[in-house]
Amino acid sequence: MKTTRLIIVAVGGQGNLLASRILGEASLLSGIPIRMSEIHGMAQRGGVVESALVFGEAESTIISDGEADVLVGFEPSETLRALNKCNSGTTVITNLSPLPPFTVAIGKGVYPDLGLLQELIREKTKRLIAFDATALAKEAGNVMSVNMVLLGALLQTDILPLSADNVKEAIKVRTGKFAESNIRAFELGFSSAKLS
């Protein structure tokens, strides 16, 4: 089985770890080998959370620079920061709703222009799917479901060896009383990616 490598980057609190966990559970349900790793020591303190998911036969649980097949970013500047994980064949999916880091507020940095950001990613990778996932999460009825919107977009690309139904099943199992709005968010992300 071909190996597929996925990187998810997010800001602490955006639900990156839950999204990864759901893809893990969906893989278990579909009998797909999966190994993943995460760096989350400072997640609760506003730092960056990065997950690596390796589907298929490879045994490694981390992904080297330039080796991601897909990059999903929950926050636009973090997507751009993780571009070192990509190559010219990588598909990139990003939320376009910024969460500027605190350093911007105290004048210790400038937030990148969103137009330039998309232009750069488009130019350097195979495909960019960019949309306001936060708006869609609100539309789904739960602003915390940005992670589910982006999972929907990810599954639409058909790059992972998983079906949307398996992922929805895992969302139901994993997220209890939020399952309904999460599925709605997933579907909004799925159809939105079709259009971009």
């Binding site: 620079d65 751009l80 990509c86 010219s88 064949g89 605190f102 400038v110 990148p112 330039l116």
Partner: peptide, 21 residues
């Protein structure tokens, strides 16, 4: 040869260090 993207042209991004809540 590794296929890493050329990172030239990417503006300096604001740091996101962990912070007290």
């Amino acid at each position: 040869a590794p296929k890493t993207v050329d990172l030239s042209g990417i503006p300096e991004l604001p740091q996101r260090p962990p912070n007290l809540c």
